[in-house]
Design a protein around this nucleic acid. Structure first.
Length: 915
RNA sequence: GGGCGAUUAGCUCAGUUGGUUAGAGCGCCACCUUUACACGGUGGAUGUCAGGAGUUCGAGUCUCUUAUCGCCCACCA
């Protein structure tokens, strides 16, 4: 037997406001939560008592977007739910201030650019502040030192972070604000450098001098994960190469400007048109360079002329040919995207040299124009160029096609070359619970399609530096194979200002001295370690913290960065910890504008989130976000926010009503405080028990949904019952709860009154808890009325079915459903007659099925009062309806509703209208 | 070209393992100021379930196919 003391609810009731509203609740409760440390993480010391969340650090240089509100609300609902379930929730916040977006924003905002040759100026003042939005020519930007630039980055991101924090707080995210990190901060840098050094030690990180994809605008290498293919207009040029005797052989190319870099012509080994030429040589037009005709299976017979010119490098197939066929490296594109200034040594022909001089230093675009002119003049251009659209690789943040240049870069293993690691990462993907599950496919597609290890070095300025130096030999040349490494305890370091052990600053860049690795790490090389950053991985003295928080429970993120953030995090945890970094990943969808277009800055249809929060309230905006499932795109819908606002207001009013009964003075004020105990044993009336039975069911369903990360369904069942509770249950028990005498003047029994009041109290207490993850402000407000001095609803216990099931005492929830349907039928009589709901019903006959009649009998007095039936109220058989019920054997409340039919009614005199 | 998701009322969306007459809210229409709520309440009308074919006694649901929308990957001669 359960002791009722265990399941009864003690309430401390405060005075109630005469009128309630949702406006202003945000500021009121946010201040209280801050002061009380409601969301502060307390490490219980055991992993099972913690729920840890790897919060996505927003790119602070990006703009606030209503999409942020959407996905962060989903995570907050889970955080609040877990907290109410007794978990110590580690819910930190990070800021992604590392990387190119910040660099670009700083350049525009302050009108500056980095010049690595400049010295640090401690008194530097930027020429502008807030030129954001205006386009500024690079030549007008003031050159400054790298260190000055980094300082400006830090200054600006600090401002951006304040904006984000203000939004998150207003939205009511239950973040522990004492646990924040920056991807460029000292801690994150230490983790990134430490992990890199350990990767290096294990041979998982390595350098390679090889062709890489190169962005000419930002002048940095980029990784496979950062590629984006876009349609790019071009022209096919049909160009003649010639044999010794002048016989032409035609190739087609979209990049004639690379003619000087051609090292071979290549056709498929099975291509009968060209088989007889394999091994022979031809001369390139204009430059007259002798190149072989070779066979390689990557050549496609049906593309262009079927034979291609291989240049180093026009595309990734060129790289493959160059490697497989051991072709000479003939590079003519500089890292800024222009043709080299020096005459290539493989061009020996005088006319060839003259042509090359025409294109030296030109952009690929102008060089192409010049080459086409020259080709046309000598007659080696067959016909006119024909326009084509082709898909070309771009850096996702760049606007010029990527070039391929050969350079020394750092790589990290990611399964792109190592089949065993690839299989392990696929396996990890199967272990991870994706919500929704179909997102796993995107992960697997990506891992299967990897074609190389992860290029992690970037030739940029604002980021985490590689923590190493290279010794210089007597000729001043670096020994890349034997880098000088710092010890872990001095991390983070910046090799451009810090000095390797055993050297002095004077030896920097001197023969026999050392030089710093100039590159920084890819921003994802830091972001991929957020699980390790927030759980204090490898921090001396934090071993216990790490043990009780890692592997984490949840990674929430956008579906667009599965290949980057999610995958790279899994990779890093596999290399470092040999496990998944988290057990669950939730993927949110996009926000579409009302015309079903994806919201994006470039489309100019972005809604700034502060506006709807101000207009409808944070709870209302959260409600809109919560009503969308994970992984599905949602439409920006202010109508949905209005509904959320209405729900919050309804909760305030309904709770106020339930708590005010029996405590009001003659003016309906409730000024006193009171104690109450809602004991399930006091719920004795059938209708009240039915309401509790339904509550037990709803609690169970909502809990199951939230356990499965289906917050929208949880909200739906809670909300549906809440409205039924308000519209039907409260209306039905109102008179009894007040102790109002019936038409015959009979006063309800004391126990019946107590039963109603107890069920109302238990019900609204439950709704406050059930809705707390969704509407944190309104629920906290009503909680404060009934549990004054007991702390926040957000640290209260999530409801369990037991107290409600106990109160239900085996009464079916159908009793409430049937009573509600009957009440609706009585209302329908009045609505059709277009009279007030207060109008009494003299006489009414309802046709109902047997089981409904049985059920209604238990709540008939309440129905009679709520419907104001003052005379005959008969429930009769309706044979055809009964047959219907029996034929399908269905006794659900839905079917029951349709078996209540008004067969006859007579209305009394409507009440006199009040002025 | 491959893959994933979507397509249900004017709008936003539910619809579990196939089951009788497909639901909710908004909006719309009508009515009601009723001692929790006019930031309200009550009642009502509303559908070629994108199209086609198939499996089945029975299909919004399963299979195939077409179309449209969104996204991911692959196509650079």
């Amino acid at each position: 037997m359960t002791d009722s003391a265990d399941i009864s609810i003690s309430a401390h009731l405060t005075a109630l406001p005469d009128r309630v509203g949702v406006d202003g609740l945000e500021d009121k409760w946010r201040a209280v939560w801050d002061e009380d440390g409601t969301y502060t993480f307390h490490n219980p010391g055991e992993r099972s008592a913690v729920y840890s969340i790897d919060t996505p650090p927003p790119t602070v240089s990006g703009h606030l977007h209503v999409g942020h509100v959407f996905s962060y609300t989903h995570t907050d609902i889970i955080a609040r739910y877990k907290r109410m379930n007794g978990f110590n929730v580690l819910y930190p916040m990070g800021w992604d201030d590392n990387g190119l977006p910040t660099e670009r924003r700083v350049q525009n905002y302050y009108g500056v650019r980095v010049d690595t040759s400049m010295q640090y100026d401690p008194d530097f003042v930027p020429p502008f502040e807030g030129t954001d939005g205006k386009k500024m020519d690079a030549k007008d930007q003031v050159p400054i030192s790298r260190r000055n630039f980094v300082e400006l980055c830090e200054k600006l991101t600090a401002q951006d972070e304040l904006q984000f924090e203000a939004l998150w707080r207003k939205l009511g995210l239950s973040i522990d604000w004492s646990r924040t990190y920056h991807t460029i901060g000292e801690h994150a840098q230490r983790v990134a450098q430490k992990a890199f050094l350990r990767n290096l030690e294990r041979g998982q990180a390595y350098q390679q001098d090889a062709p890489v994809l190169w962005d000419v605008t930002f002048q940095t290498a980029v990784a496979q994960a950062e590629l984006e293919s876009r349609e790019y207009p071009g022209f096919y040029h049909r160009v003649a190469f010639r044999f010794e005797d002048g016989t032409p052989i035609y190739i087609e190319t979209t990049r004639p400007e690379l003619l000087a870099a051609c090292g071979a012509l290549i056709a498929h080994p099975d291509d009968e048109r060209y088989q007889r030429y394999f091994g022979q040589f031809v001369y390139s037009p204009l430059f007259h360079v002798k190149v072989p005709i070779l066979a390689h299976p990557a050549a496609e017979m049906d593309k262009g002329a079927g034979i291609a010119m291989c240049c180093t490098f026009g595309d990734q197939t060129d790289v493959q040919w160059w490697r497989d066929l051991h072709l000479p490296l003939r590079s003519i594109i500089q890292r800024n995207g222009r043709i080299v200034m020096e005459m290539p040594d493989w061009i020996e022909d005088a006319e060839g040299k003259r042509v090359f001089e025409q294109i030296e230093g030109k952009t690929t675009f102008s060089a192409r124009k010049a080459i086409v002119e020259e080709l046309r003049e000598v007659g080696d251009l067959d016909g006119e160029p024909t326009p084509t659209k082709r898909m070309t690789n771009f850096y996702e943040k760049g606007d010029k096609p990527l070039e391929i240049v050969t350079s020394r870069q750092w790589y990290l293993e990611n399964g792109g070359t190592d089949k065993a690691l690839n299989a392990e990462l696929i396996e990890r993907g199967k272990e991870l619970n994706f919500h929704p599950d179909f997102m796993r496919v995107r992960y697997e597609n990506w891992v299967h399609g990897l074609n190389g290890d992860w290029l992690i070095s970037r030739q940029r300025f604002f980021g985490v530096p590689f923590p190493l130096w290279y010794p210089l030999n007597e000729a001043g040349e670096p020994d890349y194979a034997n880098p000088l490494l710092p010890s872990e305890d001095v991390l983070p370091i910046d090799p451009s200002t810090d000095i390797p052990a055993g050297y002095t600053e004077e030896q920097r860049n001197q023969p026999g001295g050392f030089m710093a690795e100039p590159d920084i790490m890819d921003t994802w090389a830091t972001s991929s370690l957020t699980p390790q950053i927030v759980t204090e991985w490898a921090e001396p003295g934090q071993e216990a913290f790490f043990a009780s928080t890692f592997p984490m429970d949840l990674r929430p993120q956008g579906q667009d960065i599965i290949r980057t953030w999610l995958f790279s995090s899994v990779d890093r945890a596999q290399l470092e910890n040999h496990c998944l970094p988290w057990a669950n990943a939730t993927l949110s969808g996009w926000i579409l504008d009302p015309d079903h277009k994806k919201m994006s800055k470039s489309k100019g249809n972005v809604v700034v989130p502060n506006k709807p929060i101000e207009q409808f309230g944070a709870d209302a905006v959260r409600y809109w976000a919560a009503s969308a499932r994970l992984g599905l795109d949602a439409t920006y819908d202010e109508g949905q926010m209005k509904i959320g606002r209405r729900l919050a207001i309804k909760l305030l009013n309904a709770t106020k009503f339930a708590l005010a009964i029996g405590r009001e003075d003659e003016n309906h004020h409730v000024a006193d405080e009171a104690s109450a105990t809602w004991d399930p044993q006091d719920v004795t009336e059938a209708l009240d028990r039915a309401a509790m039975a339904k509550m037990a069911l709803v609690v169970k369903q909502a809990t199951n949904f939230l356990e499965r990360y289906e917050h929208s369904k949880a909200l739906e069942v809670i909300e549906n019952y809440f409205w039924q509770f308000c519209d039907d249950y409260i209306e039905l028990v109102k008179n009894r709860a007040y102790g109002t005498p019936d038409a015959q003047g009979n006063v309800p029994a004391e126990a019946a009154v107590k039963s109603a009041r107890t069920a109302l109290g238990m019900g609204l207490d439950a709704f406050a808890r059930l809705l707390a993850p969704f509407l944190p402000y309104a629920t906290e407000e009503v909680w404060s009325w009934m549990h004054a001095g007991e702390g926040s609803v957000h640290t209260a216990a999530w409801p369990k079915p037991l107290p409600y099931a106990t109160a239900a005492f085996n009464v079916s929830p159908d009793v409430l459903a049937h009573a509600g349907a009957t009440l609706a039928a009585l209302r329908g009589i009045k609505s059709k007659a277009k009279v007030s709901m207060k109008t009494p019903i003299e006489r009414v006959r309802l046709a109902v099925s047997d089981n409904v009649r049985e059920s209604l009998r238990q709540s008939l007095a309440d129905i009679r009062e709520a419907g104001r039936v003052i005379g005959d109220f008969s429930l009769e058989h309706a044979q055809e309806l009964i047959n219907q019920m029996q034929s399908d054997g269905d006794e659900t409340s839905d079917a029951a509703e349709e078996t209540i039919v008004v067969t006859e009614s007579e209305l009394g005199e409507p009440p006199a209208k009040k002025r």
